[in-house]
Design a protein around this nucleic acid. Structure first.
Length: 405
DNA sequence: GTCAATTCACATGAAAGAGACCACGGTCTAGTG
DNA sequence: CTAGACCGTGGTCTCTTTCATGTGAATTGACGA
């Protein structure tokens, strides 16, 4: 038995090596890859360049505010433009610094403190992860920036997330920094996925932050095809992709608001699947598999990374679902949840908290929770599970594992 | 039959507490010259 | 004398709890036709 397995393994590795790889450079399909040339974003690149240009004379450029849905190339465009911009600055020895901060990353910016700490880190200095008064962190930041004459371009990606989490005071402080700086100037480029985000801002911040506004409209299917085939040329071996595969990818991605990132992911995963299967080409069906896999991975990942209490709540919901059909309400979930807690020696949380957890699970897209009013019979949430049937098993076993049931 | 009041079962908000981190500064201790 | 171990203090952060307030429609019940 063991022998056979061994042979099989060896065979597998052998055949893997013999097999011609499909990819030549997989990185090109990674979403954080900045290509040599950007397609279909010439207009935006030019606008940013025009706004940024005065900075080369060390005049403070206008702050820019960029909107656009996910996968419309906002980040990549800004990165691309600022890179070129920096190249020139470097050549001429102009003291310009571009700082890119992604506000979505949890470790980076979910509090005012960390946000500023991250900025300081970008300047090559360390600051304790916690423990200092926020005030002090600010002044430390001022000091670093103002140390020498320079111009700083601050790119705040997913700025809406930042404001959602910690409010807009940070932005206010940042936009006002310039008044206090003697040597330096700071220009801000804000990038937001949320189209109406600016309207929710305090008007003072809004006016100073969005001196220039730029909108990135979604790519249409044709443009995505163009982008994909362009990248596929460097990413894949010649003829590794069957006719129409890229079109299908694009169509999938265009279906939900022209998300190019999603299209790239799809193509990459499809390629991986094809390669693993030992297929010579990426076929149509690999795209479908890829889509299923991406979705599944997201879900499993989302469930797995939750804290224990979330698992308990989710487990409670799942076990109700498995017993009967129809909608579930908060009170019922809470009762079952308490039982689960006793079973697993977990300290039960209050209903208030569980209610929040249900809300968060909904936000994660693991469950569907809609608050409804049932008139005389109160107000509650209608909870349903949106996980596909074959996923339920998998999720359940993860939960059981995590809960040590 | 109509219409406002009531009522339910939570949702949603705000504030405050607990416990974990962490830096910093002071004190103690042991090892060294 | 000095480096390192070991507190205590003061700060932040996250997760919770407590207390309060909000909510939307089914139901009730008064009222008038």
């Amino acid at each position: 038995m063991a022998d056979k397995n061994e042979n099989e393994l060896v065979d597998y590795f052998e055949s893997f090596l013999k097999q011609k790889p499909l990819f030549t450079n997989k990185n090109v399909l990674q979403s954080d890859y900045t290509p040599e040339s950007l397609k279909h974003r010439e207009v935006q690149i030019n606008s940013i360049a025009q706004i940024l240009a005065p900075a080369l004379r060390l005049e403070k450029p206008s702050n820019i505010f960029i909107y656009g849905k996910t996968g419309t190339g906002k980040t990549v465009t800004v990165k691309y433009t600022t890179e070129k911009f920096l190249e020139v600055a470097k050549k001429r020895n102009i003291p310009i610094k571009v700082i890119y901060v992604n506000c979505k990353l949890k470790k980076v910016a979910d509090t005012e403190y960390r946000m500023i700490a991250q900025l300081i880190k970008e300047f090559g200095q360390e600051i304790p992860a916690t423990g200092l008064p926020t005030e002090e962190v600010y002044s430390h930041f001022f000091k670093i920036v103002d140390e020498k004459k320079q111009l700083v371009i601050l790119v705040l990606d997913e700025i809406d997330q930042l404001v959602e989490k910690i409010g807009d005071e940070v932005l206010y402080s940042l936009t006002r920094i310039n008044a206090e700086l003697k040597n330096s100037q700071i220009g801000i480029i804000g990038i937001s996925n949320n189209l109406i985000f600016a309207q929710t801002l305090d008007s003072r911040i809004k006016s100073s932050l969005s001196q220039e506004e730029l909108v990135f409209s979604p790519y249409n299917a044709l443009q995505i095809v163009d982008i994909l085939s362009h990248r596929a040329k460097t990413a894949f071996e010649k003829d590794a992709i069957k006719q129409g595969v890229i079109q299908k990818c694009a169509a999938y991605a265009a279906r939900d608001h022209g998300d190019a990132r999603r299209a790239l992911d799809l193509l990459r995963v499809a390629g991986e699947i094809a390669e693993r299967e030992g297929s010579k080409k990426v076929e149509m069906k690999h795209i479908d598999d890829a889509e299923a896999k991406i979705e599944k991975d997201c879900m499993v990942e989302a469930v797995e990374t939750q804290p224990k209490q979330f698992h308990a709540v989710l487990y409670a919901i799942m076990s109700i679902v498995s017993k009967r059909d129809g909608f579930i309400h908060t009170g019922e979930v809470y009762e079952v949840y308490k039982a689960v807690c006793i079973q697993t020696n977990l300290r039960p949380l209050t209903q208030r908290r569980v209610s929040d957890i249900i809300g968060e699970l909904d936000l994660l897209g693991i469950i569907n929770a809609k608050t409804i009013s049932k008139g005389r019979y109160g107000r509650t949430r209608d909870i349903s599970v949106i996980i596909a049937k074959e996923m339920v098993e998998k999720i359940n076993s993860i939960l059981k594992n995590k809960l040590e049931l």
